[in-house]
């Protein structure tokens, strides 16, 4: 089932489906793709920020990134089987 990365439970393995452009053009979505958020990449949420669960720490490939919820909302994932 496809869902947004920002709604993923903590430390659950998932696979990136796609990154959706929020605007046209969307430099943030482009940068997310450059950073490795592309279809088929394994991804998981590592931590949520102490205030309101924002920002998120995301493990993509071998790398950890802090993303704000609005950034992570562009990423759609599917839970790993």
């Amino acid at each position: 089932m496809e869902q947004r990365l920002r709604d993923l439970p903590l430390r659950i393995d998932a696979i990136v489906e796609r990154v959706e452009d929020a605007t046209v053009p969307d430099p943030i979505a482009d940068r997310l793709r450059d950073l490795g958020f592309v279809s088929g990449e394994p991804v998981r949420l590592v931590a949520r920020g102490p205030l309101g669960g924002d920002p998120l720490v995301v493990q993509i490939g071998y790398t950890r990134f802090a993303l704000r919820r609005a950034e992570a909302a562009r990423v759609f994932v599917r839970m790993a089987a």
Partner: peptide
């Protein structure tokens, strides 16, 4: 305009 964080945690 949205201001991105996109911060790597090495």
């Amino acid at each position: 305009i949205e201001h991105a964080l996109l911060l790597e945690l090495p």
